[in-house]
Amino acid sequence: MNEIYRFESVKKYYLASRRGLLEMALRKKPVYVHALEDFSFSLETGKVTAMVGESGSGKTTIGKIMATIENPTSGSVYFKGTKVSSKDYPRIRKDLSMVFQNPATSLNPRMRISELMSEPLGNFDKDKVEESLQSVGLSFDEVRNKQPKELSGGQIQRIAIARALVKHPDLIILDEPTSALDESMQAQILNILIDIQEQFHLTYIFITHNISVAKYLADTISVLYAGKLVENGPAQKILSAPQHPYTQLLIKSVPTVSSREISAPTGDVPSLINPPTGCRFHTRCPFVMEKCRQEEPPLVVRDEVEVACWLDA
């Protein structure tokens, strides 16, 4: 397998920002959010990998570490086979782009499209800009002098994608790129993304909380729960026969046009400041056993899929 990124036991802790003055004065130890814990994972070149999970599960954190926007707290990251340190960031950034959920806030509203499109390259390269805009179905002459505020949400997101393409990256990290759009716009964007992925042989990390979207475009799915990878493998396998209890419940809670019945797990997502001991899902899991509360299940391979659960282990 040819991998573009590999993570080994990566942790990411953030300093919890809501610390009142009093708390700071009384408490000596800073409080951390355990956003990502022992994350080991490899990203295959030329494939679309969907990162699914609910808010706070650590999806964006993984995207940001890949995009070199955040540093891991511990663990190792390998990019194209070479161990990454911060001095490699400029080189890595040439090979990847990131597209964010809310295009309206990620693009400077006062810049013209021609300027926005030149930003990633540092200079204006008409051929590349024209080609990128064309790949997302926009005409350079029509949009060059416009500002984001003159465009619709769907058009702005196409600009953001064209901007990600302009430096001819190998990897694009897409962080919920269609979540803010209406369904009919979402369909346009998803089709464009698939076309350019095939055309330019790109690798995608597609971050989404929408299982139907993941099903539509992913080759591989990684399911995150509260900062832990709980299931990882071929999309078909995970969607047709999910093994982890969380993945099963997640799939059942998604409304679809084909079925009217949905069902929900009980309880709330746990705190990441004091994450549950043992399996992080044990507070909501219908199959919880004593062992689950005490010991964390390892990620083991079963039928081509990696699963972190004590059941059937």
């Binding site: 369909a187 998803l190 089709n191 084909s258």
Partner: peptide
């Protein structure tokens, strides 16, 4: 019809999503 067809239900390999043109 366009709205229902624009919802992803299958995979990219089975069929492409239909999207409603225009705004």
């Amino acid at each position: 019809i366009g709205l229902v067809e624009s919802i992803p239900a299958g995979t990219k390999n089975s069929s492409r999503l239909v999207s409603i043109p225009g705004s």
